[in-house]
């Protein structure tokens, strides 16, 4: 094979100069605190209860959203694989159409659904859950509902992709061996679909912990998460060292979650 290695040079150079270098500068900025201490910014972040609360808010928000997406998305993917043709096509549209729509568009749709005269309130009153309209927009339940809705496709897609590839003869074989439906699920489908669940888990967690537009439009200033405090420090407060420090915290947080999920996914495959 006479392929020349220099073919990769332009892309490698672009990615290094325009991607790795800016990230390196960001890391470097976070270590400049003005008072000379190399970890000054991080001491300030973890020493201040305000920033500790922001970090805790982000962790709780990302975790609740991720587990909710898993709880809703996994059974959905499981059902979708077994749906008859036209219903499965509808299901695919329901996953892919929201993915092609901008997050801003969907968030806007939720602000209409969640207002006091909105459909969610009417629905809740119709089933008798509430007597009078309640405020959902700009509250935590509204934020969670909207975020789960928007990140759900990212959980379903990888699980569905893996489940579709499971050889149906495996389930037939298990049935021949007198394995019941629950047993078949626990021993065949679940172990084989776990890599997809881990992939979905890491993507959704990473997206939720860095979501910016969704919390801005659905809850505003009442609920502080890392992404909003970072943006504030760069765009308004002009404190790049603190912003960079918080960004490094967020980055380490996301990448370690992804690495952890990848680790679990691989360990399952090998065993």
């Amino acid at each position: 094979m006479a392929a020349a290695g220099w073919l990769a040079l332009p892309a490698a150079a672009w990615a290094t100069i325009c991607f790795l270098l800016p990230l390196a500068i960001l890391f470097a900025t976070s270590f400049q605190s003005g008072d000379g201490a190399p970890f000054g910014v991080f001491a300030r972040i973890f020493g201040d209860s305000y920033y500790r609360d922001v970090i805790a808010n982000t962790v709780v928000y990302a975790s609740v959203v991720t587990f909710a997406c898993l709880a809703i998305g996994y059974p959905f993917a499981l059902a979708l694989v077994r749906l008859p043709g036209w219903l499965q096509a509808l299901g695919m549209i329901a996953i892919l159409l929201p993915l092609t729509a901008s997050a801003i568009v969907k968030t806007f749709g939720w602000t209409i659904l969640l207002r006091t005269t909105g459909l969610v309130n009417k629905l809740l009153m119709a089933i008798g859950a509430i007597d009078a309209p309640i405020r959902i927009l700009f509250t935590l339940p509204g934020l969670y509902l909207g975020t789960i809705n928007m990140l759900l496709p990212f959980m379903i897609l990888p699980i569905f992709a893996v489940m579709r590839r499971i050889d149906p003869t495996l389930l037939d074989a298990a049935a021949t061996l007198r394995s019941g439906p629950v047993d078949r699920f626990l021993r065949v489908t679940l172990p084989l679909s776990l890599p997809g669940a881990f992939a979905g888990f890491s993507i959704v967690f990473s997206l939720a912990s860095s979501a910016y537009v969704i919390p801005t439009l659905l809850i505003g200033e009442r609920h502080k998460v890392l992404s909003k405090v970072i943006a504030h420090n760069f765009l308004v407060a002009n404190d790049p060292a603190l912003g960079a420090g918080l960004a490094v915290v967020l980055l380490i947080f996301c990448t370690s979650m992804i690495a952890l999920a990848a680790r679990f996914g691989r360990a399952r495959k090998e065993s």
Binding site: I72, G73, P75, F76, A79, L80, L83, L87, L90, G91, A94, I95, L97, P98, A101, V105, K106, T107, F108, G109, W110, I112, L113, L119, G146, N149, M150, L152, P153
Partner: peptide
Amino acid sequence: WALLVIVFLLAPIFVT
């Protein structure tokens, strides 16, 4: 469950 989730996923787009 699949129908419920399909409605949920498409709701914001439909409303917009």
